[in-house]
């Protein structure tokens, strides 16, 4: 049994790795073409306001130096071979290697996203259960109303709302950014960082709750009216034991899976929330790179976010494989009998 499970997981991961590689190739090709055909002029983006001082001759020299006069395919090949050897290029805005920028921004974002992810998961799961246990009552209706409203709320609007109430009116939290302004980097305390994190994380978690809550509610209602819960009641089980043994067991797995599969929404939400709060994370870097034509950084971020979302989905699949006995153990016992 054991070695077979391990073997299954190894082959599963192998195929997933191949899928991811092909996905990345396709994504880099498509986004390279898109950027290439966009109105962004890499030379202007690089030189900036000094563009007036650059003569036509100098411009051609830069073009030749960068290989911009070569056919598109050749440009793509030279970029992608550099990427394969680990060189994502240099960010034009930050004047730093792209991998360094992404690494630093990711550390900020991961703090934000993981807080939001855990909070929205736990709260969503709990209120979903609460609603399902009280189907049809005012509690259930309140929770449903709340979730539907949230599901149709844009993240940036929710962010602005929190900002107005808690930062501007109540003055409880700073208005934005990752650290206080005008303080030396080495003087920034962990409390400062947490204070700056709370509002954006709250925005993201409030938005993320709806999905898990509605899904959990539906699933639990289904489970509670299932044959096996009827039979459990027929055997005298009731109340919390019944919920614990039969309810929770059957709804926890899909909820966790859903939460991992929601990495893409988390990332998308982070882009907007970080922009509203000027929080120096990946999302804000993406917007900056897009607006200011920082092509190397933009392409690097596209690749990175694709990997991030893909990993979330793989983890979701993997959990099903390892935890759910129906996919874990197969039919082997029954055959032996």
């Amino acid at each position: 049994m054991r070695w077979q499970l391990t073997w299954n997981i190894v082959t599963f991961l192998f195929w997933k790795a191949i899928k991811m590689a092909s996905l990345l190739v396709a994504i880099s090709f498509i986004s390279f073409l898109l950027v290439k055909n966009s109105p962004i002029d890499p030379i202007q983006a690089y030189v900036g306001a000094d563009m007036l001082n650059v003569s036509q001759e100098q411009r051609e020299k830069i073009e030749e130096y960068w290989g911009l006069n070569q056919p598109v395919m050749e440009q793509f090949m030279s970029w992608s071979s550099a990427v394969l050897s680990g060189d994502l290029g240099t960010s034009m805005i930050f004047r730093l290697p792209v991998s360094e920028v992404i690494g630093e921004r990711f550390l900020n974002s991961i703090a934000l996203m993981s807080v939001a992810w855990v909070l929205s998961g736990v709260i969503g799961f709990s209120i979903g259960i609460l609603a399902a246990m009280n189907t049809g009552t005012w509690i259930d209706r309140m929770i449903k109303w709340y979730c539907y409203t949230l599901a149709s709320t844009p993240t940036f609007w929710m962010g602005l709302l929190l900002l107005i109430v808690f930062a501007v009116w109540l003055n409880w939290f700073p208005v934005g950014m990752g650290v206080p302004a005008g303080v030396l980097a080495e003087d920034v305390t962990i409390m400062d960082r947490i204070k700056h994190l709370i509002l954006p994380a709250l925005t993201l978690s409030i938005i993320g709750v709806a999905n898990v809550a509605l899904h959990t509610r539906q699933k639990l209602i289904e489970v509670l009216s299932s044959d096996y819960v009827v039979f459990a009641r027929a055997r005298g089980e009731k109340g919390f034991t019944l919920f614990w043994r039969h309810g929770l067991r059957n709804i926890a797995l899909p909820a966790i899976t859903l939460q991992f599969a929601a990495f893409s929404e988390l990332f998308g939400g982070a882009v907007l929330a970080e922009q509203v709060f000027s929080y120096p994370g990946l999302g804000q870097a993406t917007v900056e790179a897009g607006l200011r034509g920082d092509i190397p950084l933009l392409l690097g971020l596209v690749l990175f976010s694709a990997i991030f979302v893909f990993v979330g989905n793989v983890i979701a699949d993997l959990i099903y494989r390892v935890v759910d006995p129906r996919t874990r153990e197969g039919k082997s016992y029954a055959v032996k009998q």
Binding site: A232, A234, R235, G236, R245, R249
Partner: peptide, 27 residues
Amino acid sequence: RGKEIALVPQSVSYLNPLMRVGSQVRS
């Protein structure tokens, strides 16, 4: 119910799919 009156249901769908049958019988 379950103590003096017991039900024998129709099919395997009346067993919790994520619980080992031994522990379901024990309960």
